[in-house]
Amino acid sequence: MSKEWPLWEVFIRAKNGLAHKHAGSVHAADARMALEAARDTYTRRMEGVSLWVVPSVSITASDPGEAEALFAPAQDKVYRHPTFYTVPDGVKNI
């Protein structure tokens, strides 16, 4: 058995209505302690109103070696951005 505690990824909701955002990671023996470690490490300056912790091993990451295939094709497809529409003057909240 490893003597190191497992790693947990920490997500913070800055205020109600916003999504939880990744803030960093902590070591902790279990989920409850991970929450406390996250609270002490990442919310000391009023950064949030809610915390998630997720075991880092549960995260499946994309392979940097495949970055070309995954992300490069999007580079020359500017038409996917909704910037070619003329927005009428009267429209608010866009």
Binding site: W5, V26, H27, A28, E36, A37, D40, T41, R44
Partner: peptide, 11 residues
């Protein structure tokens, strides 16, 4: 013993 505990006790 761990950075996390260091912070918690300091807090």
């Amino acid at each position: 013993p761990m950075l996390e505990i260091d912070l918690a006790l300091s807090n």
